[in-house]
Amino acid sequence: MSRPSPSLLSRVVIWVPYLWLLALFLAPFFIVFKISLSQTAIAMPPYTPTFGLSEGWEGLKNAFNSLSFDNYLWVFGDPLYVKAYLSSLKFAAISTVLALLIGYPLAYGMTRAPENLRTIFLMMVILPFWTSFLIRIYAWVAILKPEGLLNQFLLSLGIIKQPLIILNTDLAIYIGIVYSYLPFMVLPLYAALEKMDHSLVEAAQDLGCTPIKAFWKVTFPLSLPGVLAGSMLVFIPAVGEFVVPDLLGGSSTLMIGKTLWAEFFVNRDWPVASAVAILLLLILVLPIVYFQRVQAKARESEV
């Protein structure tokens, strides 16, 4: 192409969003890190700055000497935080598996549906995703309450004699997470399964595979990119989930998102909240980087 490099325009197009993200996405993490190393103070903002550039080199040196990892030691020293991290990972992992178990047959059923129904089904999966997360969780409160709709229904059928206690238990959290993140699981699965050439399954069956064996030998391996993308999209945000454990879980439920929120809004301990956030980020860095790799690869293969 004999086109002069559209230098000014391309620079604007690249640098405006780039600088925006640098300033409002990347820089804040450094501030979080910085504050996680400072001391809690009863003031507003409630921490003593550990290092600021305003005091010049001398101030920076002094500040460096008083750098403190106290908040991290505090977080590690308290079994409550460690338990909260571990139980968040457990909730997220089990929810991801449950979402896969529900989402896979759904996505598979969608791809096998007649063509004109497929678009409608796709819309039906996307629609809840557009509907308020908070409202969808709130809907479950009325269903799962001891005097709620589920118990009324089961009692009236005579299936149970006593109301089931589901709200404010771990089970409610699983229901909430699976429910809110199910579209994130179904959409990548659907995309992977729809691309698949179904004649491969037919070939396997012609060669003597039972339908179940053909599924495990052909369909499932080919849908693996969708399985991975969907699982990441459920797992990563679920680890730091706040709304679900707060509204559906009990007071003893430990999840790190809730702990961070309480540290910040209830205890007003910003440095400890920052340390909790940094550690949560460290736990999630690997899955996030992996997810980005998968995304980048998928995008390249599209081109």
Binding site: P17, F25, L26, P28, I236, P237, F242, S274, A296
Partner: peptide, 29 residues
């Protein structure tokens, strides 16, 4: 262009970043 990898990373990361982290970090900024 310089820093393209960082740019593309930053353009995807907020999609999966737990909201509590995004919220806290922006507030501190």
């Amino acid at each position: 262009f310089r820093g393209r990898l960082l740019f593309s990373g930053m353009a995807v990361a907020p999609l999966v970043m737990p909201e509590v982290i995004t919220g806290l970090s922006l507030l501190l900024l």
